[in-house]
Write a protein that binds this DNA or RNA. Structure first.
Length: 540
RNA sequence: UGGGGUGUCGCCAAGCGGUAAGGCACUGGAUUUUGAUUCCAGCAUUCGUAGGUUCGAAUCCUGCUACCCCAGCCA
């Protein structure tokens, strides 16, 4: 078997040595927000590894902190995972294991490996030491087993207020690894849990709950991000000292960073709460639901995740790499339609009838056939597709020039009508005889082809161009909402061919030469949100 | 000044002692009913750095250096 990354190599080796038999992984989000593109990497890794070795991957909600978690988030997370096309083997919640976790905590107490500590948060911090100085033992460290058990049960029974007491693992206050300095493993928290309600008023900490839950699910490989490397000794300590039967192995990898994309959940949440964006699904958001709304195909995202690799070095991927996969996918699959963002009226002087011309739905999929587009005397083209004073090598419409109207005829420039301010009001052209698309016997050479929309049958629409959220704004402490409104969304009034009425919602189509857009129906309006610009060929 | 990690092209990333894959980006050139797509070509004498071992090192050893993470009763 060919391993794609170091994690697969580790697993392959364990498999061949007989250390594990069946591979079991889990995708472990905390339901405290929506999934973003960073989670996609973890999703692809966990599901990918399981699939590769014929194992299973569970969906596991790490809901040990009721003050931050909501059912809304667990539902949204499930939806996003389905959108990506992954199917979890089983679904579990840390809260399903609260009883087990609690009893293992009691076992630790019974074994003299945990104690109830009365120190306040500040006091614990003070005694923890620093990065360079060892910590000091809590004065409550040597309570008897009986006393600890009694106090812990009282904690569970609600005798104490938040912060009054905690349960700590008895490990080593002098450890150079701060996580091992008698870490808190249970805290009092009188908060309603979105699943267990008010059954509990004490909740286990991540470091204690996670390894136990992994073990209960028979997870063999617990994949997490680099910042948990320091926690691995504690993870292993918990596995060993609680005596759980299955002993999972934690392996860390570098989290995904993408240039210019804001990825911090706390910041995204802030944007939503401030209404700086239209919720978690706003197309400018780097959330999975935002990307979906933007029109990003899930396959493109998965391909991206597969190709960026899995390693341990901190990396930041350029957004152009993501865009490459989106473009590649859309180019292959998107159904085309024509739309004009900044319309310029063109009148065809020698054409008074109207006719339907055929245009391919997708040049890469001829089997999809063609669509009919109404061609009329008056049409709209892109303002940028006409120039009165063209630069050298300008192949679009210009004085005394010819240009092909996509799917229709070659037209020849006649004259331009100007507004009072000198801007172009409309352009008059004439059809070159025998130049119809597919039957061109005119012999006229024409280097440029442009898109157009009939002035008779177009659908007026609001076209929104979305940029990504800008990361630098986060760091420069600017007024987020202002910046977003200024820079991240541009609304155009545009027109597009009537055909798009028949395009199903959610299908993507090409905004010719400008980019790829997704159609969204918003009441009577059709909104096109730009997904990602194609390479701008005119930039030079 | 403690501990844990990581340093291979602008960005990712293979490489696991035998003489630097691949992708993105970029640059040429060819085809093209959208200057897109497609195609073909170019793009690290060098692997953070200084030494050492070896016939031979990005790969092994040693020192140095840079960057990231850890002092939540968050995950």
């Amino acid at each position: 078997m060919i391993c794609e990354n170091f994690i697969e190599e580790i697993i392959e080796k364990e498999l061949s040595e007989g250390k594990v038999s069946a591979v079991q992984t889990r995708f472990p989000p905390e339901p405290n927000g929506y999934l973003h593109i960073g989670h996609a990497k973890s999703l692809c890794l966990n599901f990918g590894v399981a699939k590769k070795f014929g194992g299973k991957c569970n969906l596991f909600f790490d809901d040990t902190n009721p003050s931050k978690e909501k059912t809304e988030y667990v539902d949204a997370i499930k939806e996003d995972i389905k959108w990506l096309g992954f199917e979890w083997a089983e679904i579990h919640y840390a809260s399903d294991y609260f009883d087990v976790i609690y009893s293992l905590a009691e076992k630790l107490i019974l074994d003299g490996k945990a104690f109830v500590c009365d120190l306040s948060g500040d006091e614990i911090r003070a005694l923890r030491g620093t990065l360079t100085e060892p910590g000091k033992e809590s004065p409550y460290r040597n309570r008897t087993v009986e006393e600890n058990l009694k106090l812990f049960r009282e904690m569970r029974d609600g005798k104490y207020a938040d912060g009054e007491k905690v349960l700590r693992a008895k490990i080593d206050m002098k450890s150079p690894n701060i996580n091992m300095r008698d870490p808190v493993i249970y805290r009092v928290l009188h908060a309603e849990h979105h699943r267990t309600g008010n059954k509990w008023c004490i909740y286990p900490m991540y470091d204690f709950a996670h390894p136990i839950c992994d073990s209960m699910q028979k997870v063999t490989h617990s994949l997490c991000t680099l910042e948990f490397e320091d926690h691995r000794p504690l993870y292993n300590w918990t596995v060993e000292n609680t005596g759980v039967e299955h002993k999972p192995r934690q392996i860390e990898f570098a989290r995904l960073n993408v240039t210019n994309l804001v990825m911090s959940k706390r910041y995204l949440k802030k944007l939503v709460e401030e209404s700086s964006v239209d919720g978690w699904s706003d197309p400018r958001m780097p959330t999975l639901t935002g990307l979906r709304n933007r029109g990003v195909p899930s396959d493109a995202l998965k391909k991206f995740c597969d190709e960026i690799g899995v390693a341990k070095s901190n990396s930041e991927i350029e957004i152009s790499y993501l865009e490459h996969f989106i473009r590649d996918n859309l180019n292959q699959n998107a159904e085309r339609a024509m739309a004009v963002v900044e319309p310029l009226k063109v009148v065809i002087d020698n054409f008074d009838a109207s006719e339907e011309v055929e245009v391919e739905i997708n040049p890469n999929k001829p089997e999809l056939g063609k669509r009919n587009v109404l061609f009329t005397k008056e049409i709209y083209i892109e303002q940028s597709d006409f120039s009165l004073n063209p630069p050298p090598k300008y192949f679009r419409l210009k004085p005394d020039g010819v240009v092909r109207l996509k799917g229709a005829y070659i037209v020849k420039y006649e004259n331009a009508v100007l507004n009072d301010d000198g801007s172009v009001k409309e352009v008059h052209v004439s059809i070159v005889e025998n130049s119809k698309s597919g039957n061109d016997t005119s012999g006229v050479k024409c280097k440029g082809t442009i898109h157009w929309v009939s002035a008779e049958s177009f659908v007026p629409c609001e076209i929104r161009k979305y940029d990504y959220l800008l990361k630098d704004a986060e760091y420069q402490g600017q007024d987020f909402s202002e910046r977003i409104n200024e820079n991240s969304r541009t609304i155009y009034q545009g027109v597009c061919e009537k055909y798009i009425d028949s395009v199903e919602t959610g299908s993507c189509f090409q905004m010719l030469r400008t980019g790829y857009y997704k159609k969204m129906v918003d009441g009577e309006k059709i909104i096109l949100s730009e997904i990602v610009s194609l390479k701008d060929s005119f930039k030079k």
